[in-house]
Design a binder for these strands. Sequence first.
DNA 1: CTGTCCATGTAAGGCGTTACATGATTGT
DNA 2: ACAATCATGTAACGCCTTACATGGACAG
Lengths: 190, 190
Amino acid sequence: MSLKHAILGFLSFDAFSGYDLKKAFDNSVQHFWPANQSQIYRTLAELDEQGFVEKEIIEREERLDMKIYRITEAGRAELHQWLSTPLPEHDTREPFLIQVYFGGELSDEEILNLLHRKLKEIEERLAVYEAVYQMTQSTPSKVTDTRATFCAMLTLELGYINSKSDAGWLRSAIERVETKNYNIQIGNQS
Amino acid sequence: MSLKHAILGFLSFDAFSGYDLKKAFDNSVQHFWPANQSQIYRTLAELDEQGFVEKEIIEREERLDMKIYRITEAGRAELHQWLSTPLPEHDTREPFLIQVYFGGELSDEEILNLLHRKLKEIEERLAVYEAVYQMTQSTPSKVTDTRATFCAMLTLELGYINSKSDAGWLRSAIERVETKNYNIQIGNQS
DNA sequence: CTGTCCATGTAAGGCGTTACATGATTGT
DNA sequence: ACAATCATGTAACGCCTTACATGGACAG
């Protein structure tokens, strides 16, 4: 139930409507935890039931009501508790790697296509990470707690270096397929 | 529906029972596509309905029947088609990164705990990858198609280098938290 | 005057997990 | 004697996605 806690995390910064939460997700944790609208609304309702948030309803004549959610003390405690508790090991699914794994079924050309497409995708993502980073550098932030900012930025940094390493792997794999040099490099480097 | 195609992939190597497929998954693609038993059986039934596999029932008096699945021509075509088709971008969820992102709520000690635990986890995984690799090196394989083997091994290589880069990130993050040096390193290295 | 943004949700379905059920055979 | 392995599945539940519904405001 990480979505629940991610929402509590944002609400620990400030009060949000469901709509604004969606935007907060998209602007920050989207690359490792995409959230979709309907799910946010449902989860917010659950958090409310559990007493972890409270809502203020702002009525606007002729338009849909707006609901602003605020974290409660219980919610803050729950968040802290979750943040400091080890997570059960969580497994990732990478459909792309299934394609690679069974790549023996494909022709060289088809494999190279696969790898090139992925490389392009990764390079684009890399550019996004860099752009986001540049933006945070040029915008003087009003956030004062540099440690909290640092924690948040660490996730961007990880996204960046992971993409870097993926790109390196792809380039090297492409080269090896091209030269029919079927060697695997694991271990014993510095 | 990658599970479907992963199963077809294994069946393109050889005929398997559901039980043996489970073992095949565990021994090979488990680190990027864990599969569980009941799901394999359900998927196998679907593949059968769709005509991508055919089953041979082996009756054994006093014991449960065994069902051996074989890929059909249609299945092979479907597999090839899927392997060579670009996948829609797929998103990963990393609960651990949510913990890091909202790490500002935690004390230094709690953050360091979080990071150290993860580092230990990664180091263990790294050791597993190395051990698996060593095993493939020492076991003279009977597989003749080195290109197919290469493709399969590439996924192990990626797991390895990704874990390496994660470990580096964690070590550096730990050091920065310890020295209260809240700098982020993105871009402009060689 | 068409489309996008604001702002809320409901409904249905898919993929995957956990727990449960059965029962003989082989290893310690 | 007891546990693990072999071998098959069913049931129920949970998270997430997709599609749909509503309706004013504002921009090109």
